[in-house]
């Protein structure tokens, strides 16, 4: 950086001790890309409470611990009991742990966007060179990354443990890769849905409750209707019903495309190629749709 020139300071009382004069900034001004990246990293760190108060680190860290603990236990058991395969598939892990994932996204999505609305900080962003799309993209990417870290870390633990337990390298690597694809989509999907809900309300509490409600109620509704369909041995319906809640959407998608075992009753995933395609399209449409809704939401925010 060049030496900032010292400006003359006419009109300033000479007896002001602290005044060393105003220095002009002559260094580089990085563009929108840098601002976007800075907002991304700030929001990502914020999702785990880093750079925030000690209190705000508690919940995300507990959830991260809760997410990883079962994986550690499974790995320990696998190593010491000479299992031939891991007790849980890589693709199944996130489905089992969905309550933890839901709590994490419900607590951190409002933290990411509702605060800016509540404290009216958004005008300060939009009065700077960044555009609406930069803000939305940074927030979306940050929460998706935070969720990906939360869901991928236990998979890494499982994978490393599996290799230490000398399980088949090929099988484990393939399973691990499929698991990563699955949690990547899950992260994007959950982040999008949660951010749209959070961006509607400046009240953080409402946001948290609404996000939990959406995830829990849709899942509850889907599984109970699936239960009814299962009792009537209507297995195709079970496969189709999964489209209606985020976590079952991911389950159906990975069942059809990644060859995972479905967590649906009777493991009846999407019944045919059409259903499989619908799952894929639904996931992609939700991700794109939530991004579009966020863009729309911030069109009106402007300066007020």
């Amino acid at each position: 950086m060049t030496q900032p020139e010292t400006m003359p300071t006419p009109g300033t009382a000479p007896d002001v001790i602290h005044n060393i004069g105003y220095r002009k900034y002559t260094g580089p001004r990085l563009g929108r890309g840098y601002a976007r990246l800075s907002l991304y990293s700030q929001s990502l760190r914020g999702a785990y409470g880093l750079g925030r108060s000690a209190k705000s680190k508690v919940l995300p860290m507990i959830l991260l611990g809760a997410m990883c603990a079962p994986a550690l236990i499974m790995v320990a058991v696998a190593i010491f009991t000479d299992m031939s395969k891991l007790p849980v598939d890589y693709t199944r892990y996130a489905v089992i742990m969905q309550a933890v994932i839901t709590l994490f996204v419900a607590s951190q999505a409002p933290q990411s966007v509702s605060r800016d609305l509540r404290f009216k900080t958004t005008p300060l962003y939009f009065s700077r060179p960044m555009e609406r799309v930069d803000y939305v993209a940074a927030k979306y990417a940050a929460l998706s990354t935070a969720l990906f870290l939360l869901t991928a870390l236990p998979l890494v633990i499982l994978y490393v443990g599996a290799l230490l337990a000398k399980l088949s390298f090929g099988t484990q690597t393939a399973g691990f890769a499929k698991g990563l694809v699955s949690v990547l989509l899950l992260s994007l999907l959950f982040a999008g849905v949660a951010l749209v809900i959070a961006a509607v309300t400046p009240r953080r509490g409402f946001g948290v409750a609404a996000i939990i409600a959406v995830f829990v109620i849709t899942y509850g509704a889907v599984s109970s209707v699936q239960g009814v369909a299962s009792a009537q041995e209507n297995y195709d319906v079970i496969g189709w019903l999964g489209v209606f809640s985020p976590i079952t959407l991911i389950d159906g998608f990975q069942t059809w495309f990644l060859g995972a075992d479905s967590a649906f009753p009777h493991a009846s995933g999407p019944p045919d190629a059409l259903a499989g395609t619908v799952y894929l399209l639904a996931v992609l449409a939700l991700i794109a749709g939530t991004f579009g809704l966020l863009m729309r939401r911030y069109r009106k925010v402007g300066l007020s």
């Binding site: 601002a35 300060l124 060179p129």
Partner: peptide, 13 residues
């Protein structure tokens, strides 16, 4: 500091 970075100033600056 955060707002300065939003305006494109590098971290140290």
């Amino acid at each position: 500091v955060h707002m300065a970075r939003m305006s494109g100033l590098p971290p140290a600056a």
